[in-house]
Amino acid sequence: MANQAAARQAETAETVIQLADVNKWYGEFHALKDVSLTVKRGERVVVCGPSGSGKSTMIRCINRLEEHQRGSIVVDGIELTDNLKNIEAIRSEVGMVFQSFNLFPHLRVMDNLTLAPMWVRKMPKADAEEIAMEYLRRVRIPEQAYKFPGQLSGGQQQRVAIARALCMQPKIMLFDEPTSALDPEMIKEVLDVMIELAESGMTMIVVTHEMGFAKTVADTMVFMDAGEVVEIASPKVFFENPTSDRTKLFLSQILSH
């Protein structure tokens, strides 16, 4: 119910991410083919598709970890070009969570969290630590604040990574297969945190194979295959009545077990 309310709100909200005919090649390989996508403030978009379909490449283009070669990407009113100032401005507004966590292993959890607020946002240390502690409580591991990442389990590390991104108080959160590197018993603790985040109204793009999660939180489902966006639909339509044969095939494979 909360979802529908949010969806209605999203319809009237402003556009925060706009991809228009984005193309990208790796050498000869055409990784993204005319990808277009619009995300509104507060919208939760789940991107799925077979591996190698370009899902990760697409969201990595949004904060310029990958460079697109044709088309345009506008994030929060700023177009992504070679302009370093724009890139840094967008990156500080867009949080990202990686499949392999990518915590800084030489820094304690607390320092992982306060680093960017202190050096990018120029926040005083005490304030940054206060915010960090608050987000650690939200991801339910405040007691781990002064450990090193290597001393935590995978699920805990990923929750720290989510908290680290949130400490920059971003407007948008990108998740690149956040549970794919986790042992099965740890997936739920990470998904629970993400569900809570979704309920707080965060704009999210999530690349994932967790269809249960998608059904719970998504406002919009995006299916990609071979570098193309094949289908964009609401979860209800997507799971019950997909239009494309490729989507049907993918869903039958992924939901069969």
């Binding site: 904060n63 990202m96 990518n102 680093l115 920059m168």
Partner: peptide, 22 residues
């Protein structure tokens, strides 16, 4: 690992900050 650079860049750290701190 590449992921360390990517994580630092995704947080908006500049090149020199990233190099010095991470």
């Amino acid at each position: 690992p590449r992921g360390q650079y990517e994580a630092a860049e995704a947080l908006g750290l500049s090149y020199w900050r990233m190099t010095y701190k991470i």
